[in-house]
Write a protein that binds this DNA or RNA. Sequence first.
RNA 1: GGAGAGGUGGCAGAGCCCGGUUGAAUGCACCUGACUCGAAAUCAGGCAUACUCGUAAGGGUAUCGGGGGUUCGAAUCCCUCCCUCUCCGCCA
Length: 372
Amino acid sequence: MHDLGFVRANPELVEKKLRDRGMDPAETLGDFRRLDEQRREKITQLETLKSQRNELSERVGALKRAKEDATALMEQVRSIKERIDEDQQSADAIDSQLRAILTRIPNFCRDEVAVGRDEKDNVEVKRWGTPPELTFQPKPHWELGAQLGILDLERAAKISGARFAVYWGDGAKLERALISFMLDIHTREHGYTEVLPPFMVNSKSLFGTGQLPKFAEDLFHCVDAEGFEPGQYRDNDHWLIPTAEVPVTNLYRDETLDEASLPVCLAAYTPCFRSEAGSYGKDVRGIIRQHQFQKVELVKFTRPEDSDAEHEKLTRNAETILERLSLPYRRMLLCTGDTGFSSAKTFDLEVWLPGQGLYREISSCSNFEAFQ
RNA sequence: GGAGAGGUGGCAGAGCCCGGUUGAAUGCACCUGACUCGAAAUCAGGCAUACUCGUAAGGGUAUCGGGGGUUCGAAUCCCUCCCUCUCCGCCA
């Protein structure tokens, strides 16, 4: 979320950045300016009253200690208190409206990010490797996997439903080997520390990384049947993580890191759970868009002035994995319209899929700046 | 699930029973100054965060796990939630 003072101080910039994202500044910002002024006006008013109340209360205390009568003064404070209660209510209402606006403003894309509408406007930055020229018609992975007996989507559907996978034998081993391979390279060669976080987090963590409040629909929400209200959530509800980014980034939430310890580089393996609401009919075949998938995540905490260089290094670290596996890929710089809500700049790595004859996203590396 | 004990500033630790000069004693850590050739020790002073008013100096408000309540006034009393610890029970 952006800082209130920053949004107030940079109205032109905010509007420009919203337009770059294809958003309507008027619609997104609404009554921001008026609410912000009202809020500060109310605060001043409220605090003056509170100041009076505190002063008078103190005098009541002094009188009582001196064993003198204080009833007149107490009556006076009581009337101030009533006005405070009223003002407090309207101040709270203004506050929550302002907060609602702030939480819906996305991070601002860096200037070097191309302004564009969707993935068609993404810019190819580099390409590595050459897609092999095959003398035969390559099979899609779901056919190959089924034939080899390593991928079983039918039984997954039976025990869990659509968009799940069962990996058998070498398929399960391959998954495990890839996880170890990535963790080992990142921890031994790239200087990351391995962490194993919980796979469930509370609501506050999801606000911290920007999944809530806008993207509640994309998450699996664990609630007690008792007291459940659809669409509602409480601070202590549990949610299945949609990516390790959520628990790992929130590790240091509300903490101040010692500058000398930066950059903090963390690598985490977790399963990831996504409801994929709204994606029905998309990528229905195979294991491309699953409710549960396994991922190794890299997270860095850096000084602001180092974040670009560290973002580049992290992206290189991810590319190294593909290179060691001899998988041809290309790096895309996402345009403003395709960049995620919390990100200021995102590189997607797209790997060559012979069965489909195209590059598809395999990895996404974002600089979130101070937004999370 | 049951019983009990706790959660206070960067850390440690008072205050809570008996509400009011307590934004919070004291110690440690940290910063500045004095002393010293320098350091240690000692002495003096400083040392939270957010919001807000103000050009500034400076002021105000809030914050003692979170939220709510009682009261003229809450770290202190009441309710509720969260977390930690101890003991008992239950379960994979």
